[in-house]
Design a protein around this nucleic acid. Structure first.
Lengths: 230, 230
DNA sequence: GTCTATATAGCGATAGAC
DNA sequence: GTCTATCGCTATATAGAC
């Protein structure tokens, strides 16, 4: 626990501290007292700068999700420009456009990388409706554009199955934080987790290979075929 | 909110109520007052029966995870018995052994199905170390046995890549709860979610197809080849 | 086993001095 | 912008009557 750098703006220090503690303990279990102590700020500072605890939570997500998803869309634009006219963009480069901004952000985040992955993962299970709306809104365009791009590589997929597959891929992102803790060999989960982030590039390559094959596999769901199970 | 059935044991009613409320709002955000009210029991009942709130949380997971994973292992045994001697068990049936007990439990849970998926998913991101140990222990044998079984279908995989792929598959399970809320069309996430669980069998078939292809794809990680990225 | 009543502690938020 | 002090509330947990 390094002492917070007083040259950094209090507002920034609060978001940094909140990101770290929310990642470690969840939103509900993290008190403003803990956040302000970690940030070296006064208890009243959160309400002064963010209006409420929820305002702070929003600020934590806002700072990350906007840039993350903008960069993904920018890379997707590049993929589509690079594609031959009338041809779908390369599936591999589309998957990289989804993945690389995320990997970069994990490595650069002020919370230790693995904690930040947990924070993003936990966002998908967030029960608070207000916060859910914020998160869903941040991902909306990414879901739309990437689904469409992938669909062009696998046009035989129904909308439903495309949607399912896209989220199976999202699931792969979310569990990377837990990959090491559930390892059979990991005794100290956190140490193993840090080492895993060191090998993040390798895991990313594993993931792209895995997802590419999943997306390219023939459709299971043939529209209009009726029930799939007995 | 149906009135609780007083013929059911208080202890059981408490676990039922807790499962439902934990699923909807998370652990930290659910008070014992809410649980006992939902269960039609006295506030003091939780401490009498479970010692503490944490005891209740443990009881909720204990009741589900043991039987879920036992059933998975039982089905895996069947797959392995059904395989020709010296041959790996059918990958498809191995994936079903992992999936079907889960799908059955989702449909039968006292919490509404989609909420229960969230509860199980949230288990993977649980910050509390005590609870994490319980959960990891519950999955330990499943991870070991299923990884080994899948490895026999794709023997070229390194241990590392096998491990990565296995958890990408786990990720697919966890996001099924979010599939509908992140839908482009869903306005009311919860209504859409309930409908999705109605179509759970379809999503399960999508998932098995997707995962099969992912597992069978050629390895990315060739042991001893060195760094994968520039 | 179930109840009421309460102890003890921590929470988010704010008023008002500096 | 930052601080102290405190309000009002809710939480978990328990003691003791029934």
């Amino acid at each position: 626990m390094a002492a917070p750098d007083p040259r950094i703006d209090t507002k920034v220090r609060l978001v940094d501290a909140a990101e770290k503690l929310f990642s470690e303990h969840g939103f509900a279990a993290t008190s403003l007292r803990a956040v302000t102590a970690e940030a070296g700020a006064n208890l009243a500072a959160v309400n002064y700068h963010f209006g409420s605890k929820e305002g702070l939570v929003r600020a934590v997500f806002d700072r990350r999700l906007g840039p993350l998803n903008d960069e993904r869309l920018r890379l997707l634009d590049e993929c589509e420009r690079a594609a031959a006219p009338g041809r779908p963009p390369e599936l591999d480069s589309v998957l990289r456009a989804m993945t690389l901004p995320w990997a970069r952000m994990v490595k650069e985040s002020s919370a230790s990388g693995i904690q930040f992955v947990r924070l993003l993962g936990r966002a998908h299970f967030e029960p608070d409706p207000e916060l859910r709306r914020l998160i869903v809104a941040s991902f909306r365009e990414v879901v739309r554009r990437f689904s469409a791009a992938i669909h062009r590589s696998v046009p035989a997929l129904s909308q439903r199955e495309l949607h399912s597959r896209f989220f199976f891929a999202v699931g792969a992102f979310t569990v990377i934080a837990d990959l090491p803790t559930f390892s059979l060999f990991a005794v100290d989960g956190n140490a193993a987790a840090e080492e895993q982030i060191g090998g993040l590039d390798t895991v990313v390559e594993h993931m792209i290979g895995f997802l590419r094959a999943g997306f390219l596999s023939p459709p299971v769901d043939v529209p209009g075929r009726g029930a799939l199970l007995p």
